[in-house]
């Protein structure tokens, strides 16, 4: 007959052996996850955010419009995916914005067959969407415990975004602002867009009251009577001649590589926009207002 104390002793010894082994396995699995992470991004905004979080070296497939190293293969874009190329880059995770027509059924099928993780963000239009993307991206890729470097970058980004929203450029109202981009006729950032959110957070007025991106003729622009027109471009370019002729004294130009991307570059864009708005005649800088007379 076996001694009960002997059985307990053997069980404890077994546990002592097993527990470190299990811990080792868990660590190895986590390390393996990180080592094997192969990302495909089908959205320039998501690619920009991945790069800011320090994950650009994990990207193995991109769209033609993503600002990532050219050596990373193009596997299509949001509307047209090259399935063959997608399979051949062997992703573990595919990141995208959900198209208006819904997720591609073939992409869903492939994800199921190859056990890819699909991460789709329904909208990337507003500051809250950008914040959610920055917050959720590391969790989606690494589960609850993203690597320390990624978590630190995420936290810094979120803090920078909060800070950018809190500190507006003007203590006084410089009058209605119009934010334009595109060609002639230009597109205006209307209500419920990420740049409109910045204006609202700073207590400034967007002259365009419609939702989304609105095509604006020069006549409509003149009728809005904006105090300032800010021309936004992600590359060095001149505003259209018609715009320069229509609003020469109110026109400001903001060139920033991230200005047209609702992504992780938003805090930088906010700073650049605030700098431009703070030079307006009707704007008394918040710094001046806060400092003692």
């Amino acid at each position: 007959m076996a001694h009960p104390g002997g059985f307990r002793h053997r069980a404890a010894a077994l546990l002592q052996l097993l527990l470190p082994l299990l811990a080792l396995l868990a660590i190895a699995a986590q390390a393996g996850d990180r080592r094997e992470l192969r990302l495909v991004s089908l959205s320039p905004a998501i690619s920009r955010t991945l790069a800011t979080l320090g994950l650009a070296d994990r990207v193995v497939g991109r769209t033609p419009w993503c600002r990532l190293p050219a050596a990373i293969p193009v596997v299509g874009d949001l509307y047209r995916i090259d399935y063959e190329r997608l399979i051949r880059v062997r992703p573990t995770d595919v990141l995208l914005q959900t198209p208006a027509s819904g997720l591609d059924p073939e992409l869903r099928r492939l994800a199921k067959v190859h056990r890819w993780r699909l991460h789709a963000w329904p909208h990337l239009d507003r500051v809250t969407d950008v914040r959610r993307l920055i917050r959720e991206l590391p969790e989606a890729l690494f589960g609850g415990a993203p690597p320390a470097g990624v978590a630190a970058r995420r936290d810094r980004l979120l803090q920078a975004l909060d800070a950018a929203l809190k500190s507006g450029p003007c203590a006084t109202d410089p009058g209605p602002v119009v934010l334009l981009t595109g060609t002639d006729p230009p597109l205006a950032f209307g209500r419920r867009t990420y740049l409109d959110d910045l204006l609202q957070a700073w207590g400034l007025r967007n002259a365009v009251q419609q939702d989304g991106w609105v095509t604006l003729s020069l006549e409509r622009l003149a009728r809005l009577r904006p105090a300032t027109v800010v021309w936004l471009s992600d590359r060095p370019t001149e505003p259209p001649a018609g715009l320069r002729a229509a609003a020469p004294e109110h026109l400001r130009v903001l060139e920033h590589p991230d200005v047209l991307l609702p992504a992780a570059g938003l805090p930088d864009v906010a700073q650049a926009l605030a700098r431009i708005l703070s030079t307006l005649p009707g704007c008394r800088s918040t710094r001046t207002a806060a400092s003692p007379p």
């Binding site: 949001l78 509307y79 047209r80 399935y83 198209p99 208006a100 027509s101 989304g212």
Partner: peptide, 21 residues
């Protein structure tokens, strides 16, 4: 008439392509 996202899909369709799936 359609929102910006769907406009992109319309434009892509107009280019014409041979579907893989």
């Amino acid at each position: 008439l359609v929102p910006m996202g769907l406009r992109g899909e319309f434009l892509t369709w107009l280019m014409g392509h041979v579907p893989q799936a």
